[in-house]
Each structure stands twice: as C-alpha cells, then as structure tokens.
C-alpha cells in the first residue's frame, strides 16, 4: 500500500490517503492485445483502438489465464480466451508484459490460424483449449 502524503498540508489543506498498488486485474473495459493472426485482431491493433473487455465469464468478474471474456473489437462483440496476463502469478506460472487474448467464434473454434506469442503450458490442463493450443507455436 502506498501512502500518498501531501507535504504542504497547511498550504493545500488536504490529508493523506492510502492506495493499493496496481494489481493489473482484468475487469470490464480492460484493454487487451489480440495475439492471433485474425484479420479483426490486426485491424484493431492498426487502428489504435484495442479490444476492450465488456464481460468476464466468471463468478468474480476478474479474469485470469484461461477465462473466457466478451470483448468489443472494431464495433462488434466477440468472445475470446485470455492466454496471458500482466498480473503477478503464483510460482512456476509465467506472467506476461501484455494482456493477451485469442478470439474465438461462438461455437468455440478460434478465429485466427496461428498464435504468434508463447502461451502458458498450464492451459493444457483444461480440455476446452485443445483447438486453441493446436495453433500455438510455443509453450512457456
């Protein structure tokens, strides 16, 4: 926790308050980086308007690796799976510099044909990722 202290309290009259450190959690309106080679993802990246999470399919509305999310991308809604987070992870679990997602269709099959970045090996645990992991080039 950081305590933000205003040095000149007499001048400004404000008091100190505390804040938590930045947790990098994936909640609604989080900006995500699309890491597959789908046309949508590429277009979003080039336009400068990244995909934004509008719903997390989770009991707690906080997404982690392996969670399904609904993103708004290029004016349309698309489902996606989170394949990498910026949030601090438990031991042996990789943490990425960007929040990565892989777009999927409504039937669960991925939109793109290849995933350009490494993907956590722990995703192999869940059976629903088999189609997506077949596109992955590298596991970490």
């Amino acid at each position: 926790m950081n305590f933000i202290k205003c040095l000149s309290t007499y001048a400004t009259g404000t008091r100190s308050f505390s804040t938590t450190s930045c947790l990098h959690e994936i909640r609604k309106l989080a900006r995500m980086r699309v890491v597959d080679n789908s046309a949508l993802g590429k277009a979003a990246r080039l336009s400068g308007k990244p995909a934004r999470v509008i719903h997390v399919y989770n009991k707690t509305s906080v997404g982690t690796v392996g969670d399904k999310v609904l993103v708004a991308i290029k004016g349309q809604k698309k489902r996606a799976y989170i394949v990498g987070v910026k949030q601090n992870q438990k031991p042996n679990m990789p943490k990425f510099d960007t929040n990565n997602i892989v777009l999927i269709e409504d039937n669960g099959s991925p939109t793109g044909t290849r995933i350009t970045v490494p993907v956590p090996s722990a995703l192999r645990k869940k059976g629903e990722f088999s189609k997506i992991l077949s596109l992955a080039t590298r596991f970490v």
């Binding site: 042996n92 350009t116 970490v140």
Partner: peptide, 24 residues
C-alpha cells in the same frame, strides 16, 4: 526464498517467479 527470471520470447516479455525450495 524466490527469484524472478525475465526473458523476451517471440517478441513477448515473460517473467516467471520460482521458489528455490519447491520440489518440482
């Protein structure tokens, strides 16, 4: 005891925290 390793793989920065006395 832990340590954190950082690398950039395929243009993606990755960090992993390892516990030194973890039996795995």
């Amino acid at each position: 005891a832990f340590f954190i390793l950082r690398n950039v793989v395929d243009g993606q920065g990755i960090e992993i925290m390892y516990e030194m006395y973890n039996p795995t």
